[in-house]
């Protein structure tokens, strides 16, 4: 059963409160930390895909994964794009482009593509304060699609 199908199944049986979902298929594993689940959607604190296919990849290959993600994931609140490429840490940092700016705070998605993992969080940064990860809402269909797209991007190299 695919990762997304396993997640769908777990969501159907999940209670309304916080939930930690995990699914594995072959050499890929998805971990989803939810702060709330209801009949229409979920509130996501963290979404991670661990894949053996990504392990040991050089930054050029990880950049291809990031580019593939940027093309596919066009249905969140903001588009995401690679911002910084760190050769030393072998990490591609993707963020909302542009971020959402409210009166006194900025919020944005941050996707880190590393040699082994793709992770997604949303951050909020108020003026004069440190940034903190905040839950973001997705419909169940969007969450499932996101997991599919993460898996497809990881398999694309």
């Amino acid at each position: 059963m695919s990762l997304s199908s396993q997640l769908e199944k777990q969501l159907r049986t999940a209670n309304a409160g916080p939930a930690n979902l995990a699914a594995q298929e072959g050499d890929a594993k998805v971990v989803c930390e939810l702060t709330a689940v209801d009949s229409l959607g979920v509130s996501v604190q963290r979404l991670e895909l661990h894949s053996k296919k990504l392990e040991g990849l050089p930054t050029e290959k990880l950049r291809e994964v990031a580019d593939a993600l940027a093309k596919k994931v066009s249905y969140l609140l903001e588009a995401i794009a690679p911002i910084e490429i760190d050769d030393e840490a072998c990490t591609i940092q993707m963020r909302s482009m542009p971020p959402h700016r409210a009166e006194n705070a900025t919020s944005y998605y941050e996707v880190l593509v590393t040699a082994g993992t793709i992770s997604l969080k949303r951050y909020n940064k108020a003026r004069g304060a440190t940034r903190h990860a905040e839950p973001f809402d997705l419909t169940r269909q969007v969450l499932v699609r996101l997991v599919d797209d993460f898996a497809a991007a990881a398999s694309s190299v």
């Binding site: 963020r95 700016r101 705070a105 900025t106 108020a126 003026r127 440190t130 940034r131």
Partner: peptide
């Protein structure tokens, strides 16, 4: 655009 970083702190 992502707000001020945390290095100064």
């Amino acid at each position: 655009p992502y707000g001020s970083g945390e290095y100064i702190g």
